[in-house]
């Protein structure tokens, strides 16, 4: 199945990826080819198969709800592209 330009644009929006027109075209073609290849999964009847998200028989892993201070504010901000008054600074939201 071929992805339309509009679909590619929509997925890019969901993924928060700005794509050039050239990228959009290229990804459209490549993703269509990959999705075509995925179709072979439909050869298998999986109606009665339970999905397997994870190989370990783990469910909820609990720990006690205790606060820990492992990093200082300075350490947490050290890699910030932009900071101000000990906070991460971002462009305007609204």
């Amino acid at each position: 199945m071929a992805l339309t330009g509009k679909e590619v644009e929509h997925v890019a929006m969901l993924a928060r990826l700005k794509l050039s027109e050239e990228d959009q075209k290229k990804f459209g073609e490549q993703l269509s080819a990959i999705l075509d290849y995925m179709k072979r999964l439909n050869d298998l009847d999986t109606e009665k198969v339970e999905p397997l998200a994870h190989v370990l028989p783990l469910h909820n892993v609990f720990r006690s709800d205790e606060a820990r201070q492992e990093f200082s504010r300075e350490e947490m901000l050290a890699n910030a592209p932009l900071e101000e008054s000990g906070l991460f600074k971002v462009p305007k939201i609204m």
Binding site: V11, A15, Q30, L31, T46, P51
Partner: peptide
């Protein structure tokens, strides 16, 4: 980028069952 696009598509509304859920069943 290609894999982010592919993964986002497989998880997106309307395609989740056909791709992601199907793949998890095949994983079993």
């Amino acid at each position: 980028k290609r894999r982010i696009m592919l993964g986002t598509y497989a998880l997106s509304s309307g395609y989740y069952d056909a791709y992601y859920l199907k793949a998890l069943k095949v994983r079993r």
